[in-house]
Simulated scan of single mutants.
Amino acid sequence: MSALVILLVVLGALVAVALAAGKTSKRRELARRQAELEPVKKLAQEDVTALGVELQELDLDMAGRELNPGANADYQRALDAYESSKLAADALSSPDEIRHVTEILEDGRYAMACVRARVEGRPLPTRRPPCFFDPRHGLSVTDVPWTPQGGIPRDVPACALDAERVRAGAEPDIRKVMVGSRRVPYWQGGRAYQPYAMGYFGAFGPLDWMFMGMLFSGGFEGIGEGIGAMGEGLGDMFGGIGDGIGNMFDGFDGFDF
C-alpha cells in the first residue's frame, strides 16, 4: 500500500472520529441544558401555584362584596396573569424564558393588591418591586439594610414580615433553590436563575445592578461547573481522536514504509 493511500485512510479515519466525538459533545450539551432547565421549570411552576393559592384567598375575602368596575378589571387582570403564567411555565424550553413567567406573576400580584385597595377604599398601592428575599411574598413595603453572606451591606426591598425580621436581627424567609445537593438562596443559584430574578425586578431599572451583582456573586460556582463540563467534553473528543489514530496505526504494523 502506497504512503498516499495510507495518508488518505488516516485522514478519513480522523474525520470519522471527529464527527463521532462531535455528536457525543452535542449529546452532552443537550443533557447539560436539560439538567439546567428542570429545576428552573420546577421553580416557575411552584411560583405559579403560589399565585393560584393567593387568588383563592382573594376570592374568599371578596365573597359577598360588590366590586366596582376598576376592581373587576384588576381582578380579571390577576386571573389572566395566573392563566398566562401557567401556560408559559409549562412551555419553558430554556432557563432564559422564566423571565417572562415571573414578569407575568409580578403583574398579577400587583393587580391583586389593587383589588384589595379599591375594595377597602384606599389609594392604589405604589408599584414597588417584590420582596427581595422571596418574590412570592408580594409587593415590598420598604427597603431594609441587609448584608448577604460574603458580601457588602445594601438596601433591599422587603415585605412587612421580612423587614421586621431583618430589623430584629433574625433571618428573613429566603426563597431557596437546589444546586446539586445543597439548598441555597436563589441569587446564589448561578446563571440559570438570573432570568428568574430579572423577571421580577428588571422593570424597576435602578435595581438591576444590585440584583445582577447578587446573582453573579453566587454564580461563579455554576460557571465553573460549566467550564469543567466543557473541558471534560473536549478531553473526551480529543481522547477519542487519539484512540482512533492509535487503533488505526496498530493495523499497519505489517507494512514497510
Score class of each variant (00 low, 15 high):
T102E: 05
A21K: 05
L30F: 12
A89V: 07
E83R: 11
E57I: 05
A81F: 03
D96Q: 15
R77L: 10
E66M: 07
T24Y: 00
K26A: 13
L87E: 15
E29M: 08
T102W: 03
I98T: 13
V101N: 00
V48T: 04
E36L: 03
L92T: 05
D47M: 03
A88M: 10
Q34G: 09
D47F: 03
P39W: 09
G52N: 10
L105M: 12
V53T: 14
E66K: 13
P69I: 12
A71C: 12
M62C: 06
S84Q: 13
T49K: 12
L55R: 07
Q45G: 07
I98R: 08
P95S: 00
K86E: 09
A91C: 10
Q76S: 13
E103S: 13
K86Q: 11
R27F: 03
V48S: 06
K23C: 06
D59L: 08
L67P: 07
L67F: 03
P39H: 08
E97V: 01
I98M: 05
L19R: 11
N72P: 05
E46P: 03
L43K: 07
R65L: 01
Q45W: 02
A81V: 00
Y82F: 08
R77F: 05
L58K: 04
E103L: 01
Y82I: 00
E66P: 08
S25H: 08
G52M: 01
E36N: 12
E54V: 08
I104R: 09
K23M: 06
R33Y: 04
L55K: 10
L79C: 08
K42E: 15
L55H: 14
L87V: 15
E103C: 01
R33T: 06
E36C: 05
K86W: 10
G52D: 13
S84E: 15
D90Y: 06
A31N: 06
T24V: 03
L105V: 09
E54P: 11
Q56A: 05
L51D: 04
T102Q: 07
A78D: 14
L37T: 00
V40D: 03
L30H: 12
S25R: 14
A50S: 13
L43N: 08
L67N: 14
T49C: 00
D107N: 11
V48P: 00
K23F: 08
L55M: 12
E57H: 03
S85E: 03
R28G: 13
E38I: 10
D47T: 01
